[in-house]
Structure formats: structure tokens, C-alpha cells
Design a binder for these strands. Structure first.
Lengths: 206, 206
DNA sequence: CAATAGTTTGATTAAATGATCAGAATTCAT
DNA sequence: ATGAATTCTGATCATTTAATCAAACTATTG
């Protein structure tokens, strides 16, 4: 018997169902968090029986992986589209930062769901996702490194360790997702602008 | 009957037991994560019965709160001691960043335990700790804001939103705790130095 | 229309969890 | 030393959970 889940061709109804379950998973993670996001809770929000989730996904881990992947590609698409529209390294960096913060401001529920999964889900041998050194590259990280290297080659940026600079930038962006007090004190547009300015000075290098 | 947990005076043995349970909780969180950190697992590592934990802590949430508070004050003490040793805003900022990264490098287990609690624990009404806008101030955050304001007043730093700058700095520091790939590519001392340099340029202001 | 493949549910199961309690063991005060 | 307070354990309980399965239902197709 062939595995219905790794099989590429899915029926129309199965695809729709999976999409519906994805939406319900998203809502559940946002509303009650990962720990209370049981099959029953997700099913309730989808208006279906819990057993039906098990029919469309191998197990809970499979469901969460599916959800995580969709969330990641969704965010990547959003940010990369806007980054590619700019041309100079400086403008690309600005677009990257602005798009990243804008995504958080526009889709808060997706960001919460993303955080909930990344900090709760673990591999079969119990390694937490947040500790994983992905072999597969994160396109958002790659793009940021590419921008920084390009800026240095074109002498628009100065000298610095691109890994460190990229991490500082990502850290500054992610902080807006984690830090509730920050959200209360600085609106997204202001924060976005401040980050662009301060990292604009930072990349000038030493 | 008086509440033994809110009561300030504890017997010698009770204090020792609580410290022992704290250590076991730390180890358990680091080794298997919050979700699998059951009373039984913690008790096993402490070499006591699970019921004894319930005797010394009201419930699991009480135990985690106690553990979290000790972890936070421990880290604060470490960083603030080293920050206060410096005098000028620029030197204080350097000390703050270096101490924060050094703490992570020296006490990885405590950092993991901290992350596990902050991203798993929730209040009675199910609000995740990472979303809480603490009314009580975080001393590490306050100190950083103080340094930045002092730098601006003394014209050592330029103009910028101190909340945004503080968050970017904290984000850059925290990134080293979250991002496994970063740890693999840049050693703590190098990262620390890069952060000091890049934020050194950033605080010059526009 | 009939048969086959795909979809859905409710009931059930086994495992794990936090909490409680009676009573045993230990320590402490007098 | 003896009674009282504290400390500790093993057993037990109620609850929750992911997963499974037979059976019912629906769509598709020849």
C-alpha cells in the first residue's frame, strides 16, 4: 500500500481538508498555545472530528511540521518579494528590515503560531527545534548574508563579520515578536525606521 | 493554618531541600525540556519521591516560578556586577554586552532552562510568560536604558529612540542563545567583540 | 445503477500526568 | 526520653492525551 501522506498527488477534497486543518491549527496555537493545542481542540475549531486529523496526517508531529513549513514559506515569500524589488545593498537591507517588521505587524497570529511551534516541537530523539542547526538553509538567513556580502564587495558597507551582523539584525527583528513591552512602547513603523537607521550606521564598518 | 510557602522563615532543611529541587529542575529542563519535565523526572534526578516536591511547592507552576526567579536574579547579578565596574556610558555598554554573552557561554544549562520556562510556562488564565508585559521592571532592561540615556545626556551617544536601541541590543544578545547555527559559526568572544563594535557605531546616532 | 475508492465519525484504549492522603519516619523541643 | 511538629513516601485518583478501528457515509467511475 502506498503512503498517502508522502504521495504527491492528493485528491481535491484531501487538499482542501488539509488547508482547513492548517487554518484551525493556526487559530488554536494562537488562542491557547501549543501545549493545549490538542487534536480535540484543533478539531473543534475546524468543525470536524479529532479522528479525521489522524486520517489526513500521520501523527501530531506530522501536522505540526506541515504547519511550520507553510508558515515559514509564507513569511519568506512576503519578505523576499519586497527585498528583491530593491537593487542596491543598502536599499535591500532597508527593504528586508521593513518587510520583516511589517509581516509581524500584519500577521500577528501567524507569528505566535510560529513561535509556539519552534519552541515546543521536538524531533523524535527529543531535540528541540530551536536548537536545530538546519542542514537545509533558511532562505531568509541566506538572503540577508547575501545582501551583506554584496554590500562589502561593492564597498557600500565596511568591514565586519557577516554572520555576526546578520544575527544582530535578525535578533533586532525577532525582538519585536518576543518583547511585548517593546510593542507597547514603540509602534511598528517607528521601530522599523529606527532599526534601518541604526543598522545603516552599523554596516558602515570599522 | 499558616501558608508554609509564602511564610518567610523556613527551616534549614526546607531551604536545603528547595535548593536541591531547584538544581534537579534545572538539570531536567536542560536535559529533556519543559514538556517532559514531569514531577517524576525531576524527583528522579533529585533522588527523592515526587510527592516531596508537592510538599515543598504548592504546585508545578509554583516550582517553575521559583526556578525562573532564581535564574533571572542569578543572571542579573552576573551582568550588573560587571557593568557597574565600568564608568563611561561607552564602557558600560561594552561591559554589558560582553557580560551578557559571557554568561551564556559559561552557563549554557541555565540559559536553556530559562528559555524552556519562559516559552512554556503560562499564567492561571493561560497567558504565556513571553507575552507578559511585566509590571515589575526587568533590572537588566532598566540598566540598559539607563546607560543609553546617560550616553545621550553626556553627548557620547547621538540621537535615537532608546527603547528601539535597547531592544536591538537585547535582540542581538539573545540571538546567541537561540541560534544554534550562529554558535557554530562564531565563537562567543568574536561575537561579543563584533556586537560591541557594531553597536558602538550604531549609538553614535544620526 | 452498482461497485469501488475515498472520507468521516464515535467509541475505545493505553499511557502519562499533577495532585492528594494516610501513615511512616525523622527531627526537635522540653 | 517522650510527645509534638516536621519531613517524607507509596499508593491512589481523576483527568487528559494521541492513536486506532470498525462501521457508516459519500463521491467517483464504469
Amino acid at each position: 500500500m502506498k503512503d498517502k501522506h508522502t504521495d504527491e498527488k492528493q485528491t481535491f477534497i484531501a487538499d482542501a481538508r488539509r488547508a482547513q486543518i492548517f487554518d484551525a491549527t493556526l487559530m488554536t496555537l494562537d488562542e491557547v498555545g501549543y501545549i493545549r493545542a490538542s487534536m480535540a481542540q484543533i478539531a473543534k475549531r475546524a468543525g470536524i472530528s479529532a479522528a479525521l486529523i489522524s486520517y489526513h496526517f500521520r501523527d501530531k508531529s506530522d501536522l505540526m511540521d506541515y504547519t511550520l513549513m507553510k508558515l515559514l514559506t509564507d513569511m519568506s515569500t512576503y519578505v523576499l518579494e519586497r527585498t528583491e524589488a530593491a537593487s542596491s545593498p543598502r536599499d535591500k537591507l532597508k527593504a528586508y528590515i521593513e518587510a520583516s517588521i511589517a509581516y509581524q505587524a500584519e500577521k500577528p497570529a501567524r507569528n505566535i503560531a510560529l513561535i509556539e511551534i519552534v519552541f515546543h516541537a521536538r524531533t523524535a530523539d527529543n531535540v528541540p527545534y530551536y536548537k536545530l542547526n538546519d542542514d537545509e538553509e533558511d532562505p531568509l538567513e541566506s538572503e540577508l548574508l547575501r545582501i551583506l556580502r554584496m554590500g562589502q564587495e561593492q564597498k557600500e558597507f565596511g568591514e565586519f563579520n557577516v554572520w555576526a551582523m546578520a544575527s544582530a539584525i535578525r535578533g533586532g527583528i525577532d525582538e519585536y515578536a518576543f518583547n511585548g513591552k517593546l510593542k507597547g512602547n514603540v509602534d511598528p513603523n517607528s521601530y522599523s525606521m529606527e532599526l534601518v537607521n541604526l543598522f545603516g550606521r552599523a554596516v558602515l564598518g570599522g
